[in-house]
Each structure stands twice: as structure tokens, then as C-alpha cells.
């Protein structure tokens, strides 16, 4: 497995994602956001953080970085998968690569907590940390088949308790919780490994 981890100005979960990949025995390297060509990767992560200070809207300005054009080509050529975590999910929605949009949590709070989720027929627990995590589903498209992760107790007002979803071709996957923060046993929770394994399974590697 070879992972590329995109770093925008303001990304702050790149290192966590990098270390999680390495821990799982994957190759990993950072990709600075002004790169307009990409090497071959199995998966490209858009990690969490506050790209461009989340000015205007979360993920709004990051979508104009050169790397996003390269990522569109990467997706189009079906070379591998793209995985968005938290701010990465917001960037993918802003770019139109995923359906719907993310906006302010209904309770007006920055939610930083361990959250129970439904994933692949089981209950898991992952950390969340976001203020703009309320998923608004598109009006004219049915996305039921694209949801792979749901909140057990919806913390932010997301439509249909959606915490993570795919694009139609299942080449892009994004979620608001932070699996990379639940990989090492020292953090008290290793459920994040299940998400990384899931990505590997999707890639048949």
C-alpha cells in the first residue's frame, strides 16, 4: 500500500495520518498542495485541519489548490482511491467530487468527543472534532447506497445521521470522524484501524 497525504496550509492532521499509515505497514509520503502532478499512489488522503483557515467556508479555498486538479485526474483515471477525513470531507464536498455539503453543527458548538457509529454492521467508536460537520444531502439525488458510516446518536444535525459516504464510483470515500486518531493503543482506542483496513479492502490490496 502506498499512501499520499496532501498537506494544505492549515492542515493539522497530516502527521497523524502519516504515522497511522506507517504503523499499519503502508508506505506514506506527504504531498504539498501546490503539486500539479502526482506519482502513483494506491490511496490519497485529504487529512483534517483548517485548510486556508477555513475562510469563507470550510474547504472552500482549498478546492482551488493545484493538487485538486491532479486529484480529479487521479480519480478519473481510476488509479486508486481518495479518502477525505474531516476537513478533507469538506474539501471534497466543496469541490463537487462528493454530493451534498457540510455546514455548521446545529448545536452551534465545536464538537470534540468520542462518538459511537454504525459501520459495516457493527458499532465502533471514533473521535470527532469539528464545527462544520452537519451534512446536508443533495436535493435531487438519492445517496442511500453511498453511505458507509452513520452516527448512533447524531451529534451535529446531519441529514440521515450521515457520518461518511462514497462517491458513485466508490473511488472516493470521506468521513467526519478521525480514524487516524484511533490507531495506536496509547490513545485508548484502536477502532480507527478498521477504517484503514476497509480502504485497503476496497482497493483489493
Amino acid at each position: 500500500m502506498k499512501a499520499g497525504i496532501v498537506v494544505f496550509p492549515g492542515t493539522n492532521c497530516g502527521r497523524d495520518t502519516y504515522e497511522a499509515c506507517r504503523f499499519l505497514g503502508w508506505n506514506a509520503e506527504y504531498i504539498w498542495h501546490n503539486k500539479s502532478t502526482l506519482k502513483d499512489y494506491d490511496v490519497i488522503f485529504l487529512p483534517g485541519g483548517f485548510s486556508y483557515g477555513d475562510y469563507i467556508r470550510a474547504g472552500c479555498l482549498a478546492k482551488f489548490s493545484p493538487v485538486m486538479t491532479a486529484i480529479r485526474e487521479f480519480i478519473y483515471s481510476e488509479k486508486g482511491m481518495v479518502a477525505g477525513i474531516c476537513n478533507g470531507f469538506q474539501i471534497l464536498c466543496e469541490s463537487g467530487l462528493l454530493e451534498g455539503a457540510l455546514t455548521y453543527n446545529l448545536n452551534n458548538k465545536f464538537i470534540c468527543d468520542d462518538i459511537e457509529l454504525y459501520f459495516e454492521g457493527e458499532e465502533i467508536c471514533l473521535p470527532v472534532a469539528h464545527k462544520e460537520g452537519r451534512y446536508i444531502k443533495p436535493k435531487d439525488t438519492v445517496i442511500n447506497d453511498l453511505i458507509f458510516l452513520k452516527y448512533k446518536r447524531n451529534p451535529n444535525g446531519s441529514d440521515d445521521d450521515i457520518a461518511g459516504l462514497y462517491d458513485k464510483k466508490r473511488k472516493i470515500l470521506a468521513l467526519m470522524p478521525h480514524p487516524e486518531r484511533a490507531v495506536f493503543k496509547e490513545t485508548g482506542n484502536t477502532d480507527g484501524i478498521k477504517i484503514f483496513n476497509f480502504i485497503q479492502k476496497e482497493l483489493n490490496l
Partner: peptide, 8 residues
């Protein structure tokens, strides 16, 4: 293209 997200 920049200031608004048409979904929101």
C-alpha cells in the same frame, strides 16, 4: 464559483 456553495 467562490463566495457561495449552491447546495447551501
Amino acid at each position: 464559483e467562490v463566495l457561495t456553495n449552491p447546495n447551501l
